[in-house]
Design a binder for these strands. Structure first.
Lengths: 155, 155
DNA sequence: GAAGATTGATTGTTCAATCTTC
DNA sequence: GAAGATTGAACAATCAATCTTC
């Protein structure tokens, strides 16, 4: 039986991600950042802070994972915790100046690395790919929002 | 400054992977498999075994990671370790009949789930996407083989 | 009771060191 | 000395339980 097209897409995306992630780890390591720390930093900016819950929702990881990553970023002075004035239960993760500088630098380094690694498509192909991937992502996000991940029969 | 197309592709693939992986974990959990265990099983078949080194190379993870995943799969009776007749240093991971049955079942479950989740592209779009992703993956693989991951200036 | 966040315990992954065989 | 594999220690991520505030 032929492999379903959706599954072929899935495998390709999976393989590509693994290849990219492997490179990311090496590159970000030169900035003394883990990929997780970078992912959190990327969601912050200098203007206003962001709730930890918002971060874990966006990154689809456990609350406690964010707590610990923010701990690390606070230890290295890249981020500060601030009480949310609108809700005394909540904490905001805020970029420090040092964090903003680090983020800019890491982003430039990472972006250059990614660009050099993903250079084998023509401009037209890249545009097409971005369009198709965007549609795919939006579909997946919509499913997540509608909480419609189907429970299969299981094994 | 506008975001480089390569980086847009990167972000989309990253986001899509995170969304898909989150669903994978839930689905495979119904088969009592972790995504890592499934990834290893997928690389095996009933006919002949496969060296642990080959598995870690393919999955881009540490040797010791494979050792431990194979330990787990052996504990649950899905896989057996066999001495490699061609090299007395090497071990082969071999699917058991139970493992083959489990793999078939998990694959069917997972494939159905993936297909239902990635259903928002037309057939034509899917074909295009597969072509483009395939080209991208081959480029990345080629870089890996030539060990040409560039060392950036760092931060 | 629910949401935001944290902590301790468990599991998963990697790193460095070790052993055997090439 | 290098390659295949394993082990113990360190790090990373999750889960369940807990605390505070809504």
């Amino acid at each position: 039986m032929p492999t379903a097209p959706a599954y072929q897409q899935y495998r390709l995306i999976h393989d590509i991600y693994v290849l990219l992630d492997d490179g990311d780890r090496r590159v970000l390591n030169t900035c003394n950042l883990t990929t997780s720390q970078y992912a959190v930093l990327r969601l912050l900016n200098l203007e206003k802070g962001r709730r930890l819950t918002s971060l874990s929702d966006q990154l689809l990881c456990a609350r406690s994972t964010i707590t610990r990553i923010v701990d690390q970023l606070e230890d290295t002075g890249l981020v500060l915790r601030v009480n949310d004035p609108e809700d005394r239960r909540a904490q905001l993760a805020v970029l420090t100046q040092k964090g903003a500088t680090m983020l800019d630098s890491a982003r430039a380094t990472h972006c250059a690395s990614v660009t050099s690694r993903m250079d084998n498509l023509t401009e037209g192909e890249q545009e097409q790919l971005i369009l198709l991937l965007g549609k795919l992502r939006n579909g997946l996000r919509a499913q997540l929002d509608s909480n419609a991940i189907p429970d299969e029969a299981g094994c």
